[in-house]
């Protein structure tokens, strides 16, 4: 409920900003405001964070609680850190987003997926891991964050030269 109000307020504020900028004819500012208003903007800042907590905060603005309804599939030992197959799925209702973090990587956030209504809460991909690290799966469901983590041992890193 609060979420809805917040969303509306944000929309109104954005609308006001656009009108104000148009009013004084700042063209560059206007395009920027419009870009910021776009819901599916690439989360540049979140991908630059060096700690997992900061990345989650930057991406979602809240913290996650551990849940056994988040399923993280990753190998115990990855022989090649350049290609580590990782899958995340969840049995939680109303999943809107899934993100994967590798805590020991230079930038912790690896990938973030938007799950619109009608799309399953399940994704598989392949990630690079610099060294042995915890992998954290974050699932956003019904406006709340849930997580699961697993340690993956890496014998040959995939980020260094």
């Amino acid at each position: 409920m609060n979420n809805e109000i917040d969303k509306t307020r944000r929309l109104i504020l954005q609308g006001a900003a656009v009108v104000a900028l148009a009013g004084i004819g700042v063209r560059f500012g206007l395009t920027q405001a419009l870009a910021a208003a776009a819901n599916d903007k690439y989360p540049e800042e979140a991908f630059k964070q060096k700690s997992g907590d900061d990345a989650i905060k930057s991406l979602y603005g809240k913290t996650a609680e551990t849940s056994d309804k988040v399923k993280l599939d990753a190998p115990e030992i990855a022989e090649n850190g350049a290609v580590v197959p990782i899958s995340v799925s969840s049995s939680l209702p109303d999943v809107t987003s899934i993100s994967i973090l590798v805590t020991e990587n230079p930038f912790t956030l690896a990938a973030s997926y938007k799950i619109p209504e009608g799309t399953m809460a399940s994704v598989s991909n392949r990630l690079k891991m610099a060294k042995t690290s915890n992998v954290i799966a974050i699932v956003e469901a019904g406006g709340k964050l849930y997580s699961a983590s697993k340690e993956v041992k890496v014998t040959v890193g995939g980020c260094g030269g």
Partner: peptide
């Protein structure tokens, strides 16, 4: 005409990326 899946990636996604997901409809 509807977005069914959006991936935001950082540099930690492997070379020649692979993705799997499923949707209804």
């Amino acid at each position: 005409g509807k977005k069914i899946f959006v991936a935001d990636w950082g540099p930690a996604v492997s070379k020649d990326p692979y993705l799997k997901f499923a949707f209804k409809g």
